[in-house]
Amino acid sequence: MYPPKFGYVRVTSLEEAVKVLESDENAKILAGGQSLMPMLKLRLIRPSYLVDINRVPNLSYISIESDRIRIGALVRHHQVEVNRDLWKIYPALPETAVQIGDPQVRNLGTMAGSLAHADPAADWPATLIALRASVKILGPPGVREVPVEDFITGPFTTVLGRGEVISEIVIPRFSGNVKSSYVKLERKAGDFAVVGVAVMLRLSQDGSVEDASIGVTAAGPKPFRPVRPRRH
């Protein structure tokens, strides 16, 4: 329960983090530490350096624009939980946040960290897949954007390459009557999901469904979008 020796670098910009990660492939970003620190204490990982991004300015934004929502790499689960606009636009987002772990975890853990960690039972991926979100990645060659469902490639693995970091999560907004929700089945309060399902629906004026999108977590090696939802 005591970590092995590791180095520590505090960076003041994501560009700086990219440089450190590019030069040392065993260095790891430290965001909320809610997945990283337990693994470190259990000696499951032995990073050379922790690259602490917590002091990078202007990364804690939830920016609500007309056609999209941008969530910065340091936005904590708790910020999503208490954001009134999100409760109106996409209740699935705060509904997901409140069901993650306990208050301590939610005060520190980040959405970006959860995606990068890619636990096959993590909650965010289901919701972000249903909302057709994508991950903005900053790397040595520049910026690229990958849909969440392609970003996670398997248990604890993502498309992040050497030197790449998540800079933000981008969630598109749709016009009209949009509904969303996240439902999590857990054995005990605060547990990881037995299964989690998020749904987004776009309704036409008469209430019929124009468009539906679903994300599922904890039901396979990685979160996924059931492409042909069957009727029962």
Partner: peptide, 11 residues
């Protein structure tokens, strides 16, 4: 503790 099933206050 999570695998073990220890209850916590919300339970």
């Amino acid at each position: 503790l999570a695998d073990y099933g220890l209850p916590s206050p919300p339970d």
